[in-house]
């Protein structure tokens, strides 16, 4: 019995680690994350990847929903402008997220929790850098409680 309770206690004592939801585009950023893994580049295990076919497929409500369901940070990554598999998807996304970023800031929701970046299939190192930076920022802020659902 004692052993089990000790294990449980140890589990609850665990330090808080942020949960980061990363929406990665299938053709560039997902391959970039894959490359980071294959090249054995170290990056924090805080990130949970959701693969979308294109950043242009992303509805801004995905980001809001992620925050509602308890994400501490959200990363949206896609191909560099001009490199999109669907020619122009990321250019639509850029306009959309410029407005969402302004809105998040205007409402006083911590802007540092949302990050958008361009990561190509060859930039494994950049993906690791981006994730590390977002994790550091979110760790400083602590758990996200503004939009979290009860």
């Amino acid at each position: 019995m004692n052993v089990i309770t000790n294990v449980e206690e140890k589990a609850t004592e665990k330090v808080w680690e942020p949960k980061i939801i990363a929406f990665l585009c299938n053709w560039c950023s997902y391959a970039g994350a894959d490359l980071a893994g294959v090249s054995r580049i170290q990056y924090p295990p805080t990130v949970r990847v959701i693969r979308v076919m294109c950043t242009g497929r992303m509805n801004p409500s995905f980001v809001i929903k992620a925050f509602q369901n308890g994400a501490d940070g959200v990363l949206v990554a896609g191909c560099h402008p001009g490199d999109c598999h669907y020619i122009q998807g990321n250019l639509y996304a850029r306009r959309r997220y410029s407005i969402l970023a302004g809105l998040i800031e205007f409402l006083g929701i911590e802007r540092e929790r949302f990050m958008m970046s361009w990561v190509s299939a060859s930039e494994g190192g950049k993906f690791a850098k981006v994730v590390t930076e977002l994790t550091d920022r979110v760790k400083k802020l602590g758990p996200q409680n503004q939009l979290r659902r009860p």
């Binding site: 306009r95 410029s98 958008m116």
Partner: peptide, 17 residues
């Protein structure tokens, strides 16, 4: 409509990394 179109030179100061 503005969000149904794009310009390749749109500002992207909010995009990081």
């Amino acid at each position: 409509p503005v969000l149904a179109t794009f310009d390749i030179n749109d500002k992207e100061e909010f995009i990081e990394g």
